[in-house]
Design a protein around this nucleic acid. Structure first.
Lengths: 207, 207, 207, 207
DNA sequence: CATGAATGAGGGTTCATTCAT
DNA sequence: GATGAATGAACCCTCATTCAT
């Protein structure tokens, strides 16, 4: 994050961050107009470019900031001593829900970034995604207790299948919540539904 | 598809279709320049608009055409008498690989369309996706033989998990193949890898 | 008129003439699309340009044709032996009404041409208008019986005032008829109204 | 007029106004290129659209501005206590000449607008014209001293004839001045010529 | 630090005109 | 003669970015 920007009062920072995040999440990179961002953030055109040199920098900075925020929270809030894969996934899900309460558009933005196709940011984004997945995300699921799985199963495949299931579930929830304001979403129920899937997976893969 | 366009010699049709599909897949709707499409297709600017009223129409027409092509192939090439869910998924995967040989960018394009969020096409796309998923895709996985699953499992959840796994696998393959030309991809190997995952799932979910 | 065009069967000629005249009258030169003309005339794009080389030629040819038609009719149908200026104006008005029955759009077209502003035809049109007004139209009102006017009046000014009144009246009628089909216009009544104005003018200017 | 535009220094405002007015007057709505306007006004393409949403808005704004200017001047500069119809027409003519000195193209533009028939602005223009003519222009000639007219004349017809004569005269002058720069026009002489026609009309219609 | 007027390259689209069939 | 697919220059308009104030 640009140091100039960080010197700003917190409230103004958040106004800009949220405005940009929301616009990028809803419209994608190219279709987001810096005009709309500044209008929504209540700042002048010039100021945005004073802090972020250009639109690309703004987008990438935003991406980095929230990826890092997510990872930092993971490090701090997840109990890494607990080696049970399902327990870990469940903690991550709970964490996501908490973050979602803080930054309503964070996952819409991050997911949109995952499938962002605009020339201007695609390659840079791809390399960061790779780094993110290889260095951070993957290891989170490596030091788990593999002794709990049934014999005769390819454990690494099982781990992948569980991840895919978690992602599939998250995606399904997002589709269900599309268009709703955060108050209208019953996130408690979501966790309970998740437990249903975890139960099935546990029953099938665990001894 | 516009009748004027269909009257064209097949080779030119394909040149235009492929050029448009590739550009849209790589850059998204908004960032794709019709300039690049016509340059790559080797036709004049005016001709593109002679066939397709405007950029939006071109995009949507392309989407409809390839969705329909996919569904038609599904109807014809998949053995719907075979009620085994894994067998069915495997047949669909094989079909996708075949289509991929014909139209290199078809799934990149279709996937990009799934997460396209340009104002201009989003709502139209959303309604078509809904129709597609509800009327066609869903029922394909409904009339399967549920007696094969282990007792005590929530079958509908299992079916979802299997789908998510198939999607996760496909996504992983795509990431692996990104940047490669079609000749460099070992699609035979892909099917064998898929069989590995299917084996795990079968072992876990079937009696 | 192009000889090629004149060789065409009368009915097709008229179809093209009327279609072009209507479009030009309604939309002006620039805003008229040759596409609409050919569609309305029921001929192909190429054929129009086979007869008229380009849009400009078509417009100017149309203009010349109907100006000439108008002048020819004037020569033939008006009784030039009658030297009374009001009688002459009245005859011209009646003639216009007759022509209007034949070619519904003729005066809309000709009037639109009078105030056509498009670069492409303006200068050419201006020179033709000048010719038209100086050589043909003016003299029509020169050999009239000036002995009927009251003494002490500048006769040439009176003649102008009468012309302007006739034009003003015609313009007022057109505004009244705008949007109506020819069947809905009571042209008989129009002539009677004209007589009202002529009476006033006669009373004021004649001995 | 857009507030942004009004905040501009007067000189630049006028440069843009005059450039646009001249182009529209000479070429009509459709044939006028915003490229030419900005070139002539010495501003960038983007700036024009910074002030006026689009070409249509520019045209209509221009029209409204100068119609209003004209009407305001009428209200203020014409002596409405003087009920003599010729005196009033003469005052209006003098006012027009004064405005013409300020904005060389104002009447060419306004007249061109009267017979503009581009789809894009026609309907809007028509409704404004109607308002203009009915509410403002008409009443200006209603409260005149009718006792001065000779007995036995249809006064309302006389009033129309006088208006048509004034319009005819104005049109004739315009044709005479076409192509001349404002310095080359002897506007003093024009007023004297007008007096000649007024004299004739007075002699004929007044007691 | 903060503003928003100003820029201009680039985009989508139209349409008169050509020409192979 | 007759067709309409094909062309490309020109159009209106957008928007990230700059810079004088």
């Amino acid at each position: 994050m640009e140091p100039k920007f960080l010197a700003l009062e917190q409230e103004k920072q958040d106004r800009i961050l949220n405005a940009a995040m929301k616009e990028f999440a809803q419209n994608g990179y190219k279709n987001t107009s810096t005009n709309n961002i500044v209008k929504q953030a209540g700042i002048s055109k010039g100021l945005l470019f004073h802090y972020f040199t250009n639109k690309r920098e703004l987008y990438l900075t935003l991406y980095d900031y929230f990826v890092e925020l997510f990872l930092k929270e993971m490090q701090q809030k997840v109990d890494w001593e607990d080696k049970d894969i399902f327990s870990r996934h469940r903690q991550i899900a709970a964490l996501k829900i908490k973050l979602f309460h803080q930054y309503e558009h964070i996952f819409n933005f991050l997911n949109a970034a995952m499938s962002e196709n605009s020339r201007e940011v695609k390659s840079e984004l791809d390399s960061r995604k790779e780094k993110f997945i290889n260095h951070n995300y993957r290891e989170m699921l490596q030091d788990i207790d593999k002794s709990k799985f049934k014999e005769g199963l390819d454990v690494s495949k099982i781990i992948e299948i569980i991840s895919w299931s978690m992602e599939g579930f998250a995606y399904k929830q997002q589709a269900k919540f599309k268009g709703l304001s955060i108050n209208e979403m019953d996130l408690e129920e979501t966790l309970q539904e998740l437990d249903g899937y975890i139960e099935v997976l546990k029953y099938s893969f665990y001894k």
